[in-house]
Computed example of a mutant assay.
Amino acid sequence: MRSHADGDDTRFYAIAMQVAAQAALSGHGKFAQDLRALVDLVREHAKAADPVLRNLKPVPLAQPRGELAGLLTVDYPKTRIVDMALTHALRTKLDRVITEQRQRDRIREHGLAPMRKLLLVGPPGTGKTMTAAALAGELGIPLFSIQLDGLITKYLGETAAKLRLVFDAIQSTRGVYLFDEFDALGGERGSKNDVGEIRRVLNSFLQFLEQDESDSLVLGATNYVGLLDRALFRRFDALLEYAHPTADVAARVMRVRLGLLDTSSLNWDVAAKAADGLSHAEITMACDQAAKDAILDHRTAVRDSDLALALEERSSTHA
């Protein structure tokens, strides 16, 4: 109420989304969904009514033309940071990135630059790609995913030329640009598998990244941080480290994912122990399986046995 009275809409909406997340954790799934939908609706109406906000809308590249068509895919995510189960340290870093982006003009007025070049490292399924979507959703800008299979070619000089096209797009259209499986591009120079063309591509990438002063966010994500060239790390503003969820985070993932069903009889401590060693994505898939088992059995409640079996199957697959 205080943020609304002060006219601080950004904080007001953020608090509303936090209330929705807490409602989902408490089992009030319908209320959480309704509140999130209402916040999104009010945001859109505010943008439509404010000519300044209308002018800040990104130029869409939903149909990238020419060579860009094979290099970029675009999406406009509705994911939010509150939708993610994060450690306190990681949440704090992401909140800081969002705050600096929302106040980037103020920061630049003082001769400083906001954080916008992020390196995301950690095992598969721990939230790196979802982070890119959440940043785009929070900032209301598109998410562009770079297609490395279209970027990297066997022809001398062609990959660097395509990379220049990508950085031209980064400069001209504000968005979140995700280089997934980044180790394929940023592998360490001088390794035994190194080839001259890839070394030249990495040199070009380092040069483009260092020269880039756009308003876009550039994210590199990799499962294999040990393969990255050391020179990359000082080119990024922040290193975000992801890991398999702790027991508390695992329980939070399960509570949110099963929030639309009755989970009052579930033993969360046992479930969290069964989820040990699984990634966020694997836990999510296990919850979906348990929920579908309940629905197909015409039940509104998820049983311990449903969830335990689903987690066990994911553990077997994981092993």
Results as ranks from 00 to 15, higher is better:
Gly277Val: 08
Asp304Tyr: 02
Asn267Ala: 05
Ala301Ser: 12
His298Gln: 15
Asp269Gly: 09
Ser305Met: 06
Gly277Pro: 14
Trp268Asp: 02
Ala272Val: 07
Asp237Ile: 07
His244Val: 15
Lys292Pro: 01
Arg299Gly: 10
Glu312Gly: 11
Leu296His: 07
Val256Thr: 07
His318Gly: 04
Ala286Leu: 04
Asp297His: 11
Asp237Lys: 10
Pro245Trp: 09
Ala247Gln: 14
Ala310Phe: 00
Asp276Met: 14
Asp288Glu: 08
Ser305Arg: 12
Ser264Lys: 06
Leu309Gly: 01
Ser315Arg: 15
Phe236Tyr: 04
Ser315His: 10
Phe233Gln: 05
Glu313Cys: 08
Leu258Ala: 09
Ile283Asn: 10
Ala274Gly: 02
Glu313Lys: 15
Val302Glu: 04
Val249Cys: 04
Arg303Pro: 00
Ala238Glu: 15
Asp293Trp: 12
Cys287Leu: 09
Arg257Met: 11
Arg234Thr: 06
Ala271Phe: 03
Ala247Leu: 11
His244Pro: 10
Thr284Leu: 11
Arg257Gly: 05
Phe236Glu: 01
Thr284Met: 12
Ile295Gln: 13
Leu260Tyr: 10
Ile283Cys: 11
Leu261Ile: 03
Ala238Tyr: 10
Ser264Thr: 02
Asp276Ala: 15
Ser316Trp: 04
Arg314His: 06
Asp293Met: 07
Tyr242Cys: 09
Pro245Gly: 09
Ser316Val: 13
Ile295Phe: 07
Arg252Gln: 14
Leu258Ile: 10
Ser264Asn: 03
Asp276Thr: 15
Pro245Glu: 08
Glu313Arg: 14
His280Ile: 14
Val270Tyr: 02
Ala238Ser: 14
Glu312Gln: 07
Thr246Ala: 07
Leu261Met: 14
Leu232Gln: 01
Leu239Thr: 10
Asp276Gly: 13
Arg257Trp: 02
Gly277Thr: 10
His244Met: 14
Ser265Gly: 01
Ala238Asp: 15
Asp288Val: 05
Lys292Ala: 13
Trp268Ala: 05
Ala275Arg: 11
Glu241Ala: 13
Asp262Trp: 01
Val253Tyr: 09
Glu312Cys: 04
